[in-house]
Design a binder for these strands. Structure first.
Length: 271
DNA sequence: ACGGATGTTCGCGC
DNA sequence: CGCGCGAACATCCG
């Protein structure tokens, strides 16, 4: 599920689901998502808590409760937060369930266990090393083309790999970088430092556009799970190698960059 | 049966 | 130190 738009949606959902509610009990069997944290302390400390605030930074969720209890949540590859009205059977991979005193529960579901849920003092959440290491968040901080260009100048990597680096910009993954480069008509394999100021400007606008478009699609319920991409793929070129470019009709191609399949139009995004 | 999938991290070799 | 690559993590789907 998770790149910036999906995580933002999770943050908004959790704020609604947890507002003015009390966590009555926590059910959290041992699993990898608790790595590095004391699971039993997490269960104990969360009991009786009420939400204070939730923030998203890149693909991370910071969840602060009363009495200074803090949770750091990362959705990994297949993590999602769910509202379970009563009992659940469709949520087959629930790893942590926060049962609410007011009824129902809020649950973290993660099939592949690449996600993470760890306990921290609430006031330290924003100062955690993994959060401090993040670059600017496109939604919270905005994207400064000058700053981005400066970062590009310092590396010999391709623009696609640089954009997926969370220290450059926080929140972009394989889908959003693929889409943004297509919108900006920039070949993913271009050296980041070779981009002209005009191209960086175009790229910044493309990133903002694709993030907003995906957020709108999620709000419009157009995206449930992108695993269904074959049938409901809402993206312009992601996973569409072999199909016709929506702009010029040329057959879309794919290559591997930074270990991820990258789709591009060889004509619109020439080297 | 095989290959690939929205992410992060680590080790290796250059 | 920077960078690319492959592996690992665990499971499902086409």
């Amino acid at each position: 599920m998770p790149e910036l738009p999906e995580v933002e949606f999770a943050a908004r959902s959790l704020r609604r689901w947890l507002a003015d509610r009390t966590v009555q009990e926590v059910v959290a069997p041992a699993s990898r998502i608790f790595r590095g944290t004391d699971r039993k302390a997490l269960v104990r400390d969360l009991r009786g808590r009420r939400l204070e605030w939730i923030e998203r930074r890149g693909k991370y969720l910071l969840i602060a409760w009363d009495r200074g209890v803090g949770l750091l949540s990362h959705l990994g590859m297949t993590g999602k937060w769910l509202r379970l009205p009563e009992h659940q059977d469709e949520a087959t991979h629930v790893r942590a369930e926060l049962i609410l005193a007011e009824g129902g529960s809020v649950a973290y579901d993660d099939q592949r266990l690449f996600g993470r849920l760890t306990l921290h003092p609430a006031e330290e959440l924003l100062d955690l090393p993994e959060i401090r290491a993040l670059g600017p968040d496109p939604l919270i901080d905005g994207i400064d083309p000058g700053l981005l260009a400066e970062k590009f100048k310092k590396t010999s990597r391709s623009v696609k790999v640089a954009l997926m680096d969370q220290r450059v910009l926080a929140g972009l993954g394989n889908i959003q970088t693929t889409e943004a480069l297509f919108l900006a008509r920039i070949h993913p394999e271009r050296e980041a430092r070779s981009l002209s100021p005009e191209e960086v400007e175009r790229l910044v606008r493309a990133i903002e556009d694709t993030l907003q478009k995906t957020l709108d699609d999620i709000d419009g319920d157009l995206i449930a799970y992108v695993e269904e991409a074959g049938s409901h793929n809402p993206f312009q070129i992601y996973r569409r190698q072999g199909e016709a470019c929506p702009r010029c009709g040329t057959t879309l191609e794919a290559m591997v960059l930074g270990g991820r399949t990258t789709v591009f139009c060889p004509r619109c995004q020439s080297l």
